[in-house]
Write a protein that binds this DNA or RNA. Sequence first.
DNA 1: CCCTGATTCGC
DNA 2: GCGAATCAGG
Length: 182
Amino acid sequence: MSWTDERVELLKQLWNEGLSASQIAGQLGGVSRNAVIGKVHRLKLEGRAKTALPGQAEAPVQKAVEAVIETRAVEVEISGRAAAQMGGGRSVVRSVGATALKVETETDLVVQHVEGPGGEVVPISRNLTLVQLTERTCKWPLGDPLSEDFRFCGNPSGDSSPYCTYHARLAFQPPSERRRVR
DNA sequence: CCCTGATTCGC
DNA sequence: GCGAATCAGG
């Protein structure tokens, strides 16, 4: 594949939307994340201030972003408790998406699932799109394959299975162990 | 180990 | 210009 005008335009768009190089590579197809990063540099469309130069003060913008993330962390925590009270079951916080990384580190994945009314354990899927799947993300389908909202579980799968531990059971265990498929 | 972007350098 | 290999970091 080559860098046609359209592909370059899409690259710029996705990069500005904050997608990672590997995700962009997946969307474009036919290129590696290195290719994407290389192209980004050649186009001189930086914008991802990652490596803070030593001795330099933190950029105000970066601090603002962190403040927002901090706020979101609290909100998620609150909503998690609310859910626990309303549902009567154990419910906890599970970060989803790049903007909630702070939550993940602070709660250390306190919960990865929710217990339903019947006591069944239902995992909180990451709802990844096809292009976001990697060799070790759960490929359990969610929703209608013909719909735009079609997603995959995306939870860690371990390299021995195409599914996370929960979905591996639904996929390979006897129907008697199945409950509601979500 | 998984992932991220940054840089180098042969092509 | 391109991107694999490599580096640095979370």
